[in-house]
Design a protein around this nucleic acid. Structure first.
Lengths: 335, 335
DNA sequence: ATGAAAGCGCTAACAG
DNA sequence: CTGTTAGCGCTTTCAT
């Protein structure tokens, strides 16, 4: 048996090449006996296609990204693709280096939740028609397809809820600046004030990273101000966790002393000492849509014109927001 | 310039081959101008080494595994290795299939948190001297190096704490049966009873998966029994979250109506409606050690005799365990 | 219905 | 100091 015939049989092309049933049997049997397994490196080298997609995100230990990663893996696998998960550590240099590595490994496409501060390296790929889709973070006015939540609308609703509950001094603890989810959420915060004819005090828009530490530090500082806000809008789940840590240390009670509303719902959100009112994203769907988009791009060799997707968020009312009008709380129930 | 010379220069072997400074400059400049990037597929094919390690685990969206994944990635990267993160979905068939795929992709080694029910496929790799290290879950009496926490000791201490607090009817909600962390934790539970001369009632060892749903269902059932336990030992963080959900629905208060102690500390554990007393693992170290071990194995071509590592756990006292002796609670503080 | 040969991009042995 | 050659394992065209 020549290598050629073996290759044809093992790749299910017996029909096409009209390989005799007998030869097929011999080859299949031998393959099984020898425990043959093809060398995908050689295969990919020859085929110029690896059936592999990379998903690069800023922090794989953040449950938001890891659950999205999981949904991407699941969908892609069902379509015959392997996913390699990469962690850029919220660092643009690392991101660039990872992309380089992935390209050298000849992945067929790239799903990326970019750090979000620079896009030249991404735009270049897209222009070269290399399949790429952005997830969660995108670049306004830059034409690379993305999937993300409607962060602006989510924030607008969250802060509107706070305002309608009678809060006017509301701190916004933001994440990494100049990053789309951050900008959109902060803009939602600002426009909520506008909507109600209130003025925004920039002194209360603080913070600079999506991490826990940032929420902690900013809240610590916040509580030392002359005018302590009556509510906090935390732009990520990690930020709200940090805020809670500071609040606890300083013996502030939620929501009696201060209300909190947070982006990103998590399994534990409902069990926090006061169940957290959150704006939840459809993370599973985000991952799946991204996977589908990248696979379509690969199939069309980057010649498809793809529209970006914005998914709605939803507010989950729990007990962390207190109404300042009467003395009852806004929210469904508090344990 | 011949390809050979280019290869030598670009791989930093100019010294060794005494390439002229001039040639080096020409090549480096050209490489930069042409934006040359090597094809790692071809390189790996030729070299029979990919500088890639796979980490296969049962659930990448579980923060325990994703944070371990992160530490592996970090350490491996510093040593020049890329990590491919894979999710076996707590399914042995999937695990076997992933391993096959990874071998076909010629990874240099394998770190795996196996589903834990079968090991023949893993043992075979180890016997063939393929670099492999188990993480979190291992197989007693099977000689494959592993890194994990001292789950037995951790459980022993946790349940001892419960017993010393006056509890005798303690439910153990376990995870996937016949899995090492589960067995070790359940044995710790059993031996704690023995240590105090108490008898174990197998009716209170229940459950069958590490997931949230399992904790929920088993707790629901538990609360309908004639003898409702006064304490729950939850074998994983997800299980305790599920237990909390059931407890809340059934209007049981922690720790006044029922005490809870859980394996795995998480950032949110201290902020739960009653801060959870947990047994914490050194997950960052576990990941780093596993990475170091696999890299050593790769370097020695599987000819190194490696000892397995057991890391100590630690109990973090918070408010979810109540003493039944006097009326004060065991634990440091409860918000 | 099958085989021979070429080539994917790279590196190492050998030659000079 | 640099080039030539061979070959890693695979698939596909071309030939028969």
């Amino acid at each position: 048996m020549s290598a050629a015939t073996v290759s044809r049989v093992l790749n299910g092309k017996s029909e096409k090449y009209r390989i005799s049933k007998k030869t097929q049997d011999i080859i299949n049997k031998a393959a099984k006996e020898l425990n043959y397994s093809p060398n995908q490196l050689a295969r990919s080298l020859r085929l110029k296609r690896s059936n592999t997609i990379a998903y690069i995100n800023p922090d794989i230990s953040n449950p938001f990204f890891s659950s999205i990663g999981k949904s991407i893996v699941k969908y892609a696998r069902a379509s015959g693709y392997s996913i390699v998960l990469c962690d850029s550590e919220e660092n643009t240099e690392m991101e660039i280096s990872l992309i380089k590595t992935m390209l050298e490994h000849k992945v067929d496409g790239l799903i990326i939740s970019p750090v979000g501060l620079k896009y030249a390296h991404l735009l270049e790929l897209h222009k070269r028609k290399f399949p790429i889709v952005l997830l969660d973070r995108y670049f306004p006015k830059v034409d690379i397809p993305y999937v993300t939540s409607d962060n602006y609308q989510g924030a607008l609703e969250a802060v509107s809820l706070l305002i309608e509950s009678g809060h006017t001094c509301i701190a916004c603890i933001q994440g990494l600046k100049n990053t789309s989810p951050n900008n959109d959420r902060v803009n939602g915060y600002i426009d909520a004030f506008r909507k109600y004819g209130l003025s925004v005090d920039n002194e209360y828009i603080i913070g600079e990273s999506f991490g826990e530490e940032n929420g902690y530090i900013e809240t610590k500082l916040l509580l030392k101000r002359k005018n302590v806000p009556t509510a906090i809008f935390a732009v990520s789940n990690l930020i709200s966790l940090g805020a809670l840590r500071a609040l606890k240390e300083e013996k502030y009670m939620v929501p009696d002393d201060i209300s909190v509303i947070s982006f990103d719902d998590q399994p534990y959100s409902q069990f926090l000492s006061t169940p957290m009112t959150t704006v939840t994203q459809q993370s599973f769907q985000i991952g799946q849509i991204a996977a589908k988009m990248i696979i379509d791009q690969i199939a069309s060799k980057g010649n498809i014109e793809q529209r970006s997707i914005l998914l709605p968020t939803r507010i989950i009312l729990r007990g962390s927001v207190k109404s300042r009008h009467s003395h009852k709380k806004t929210g469904m129930h508090k344990i």
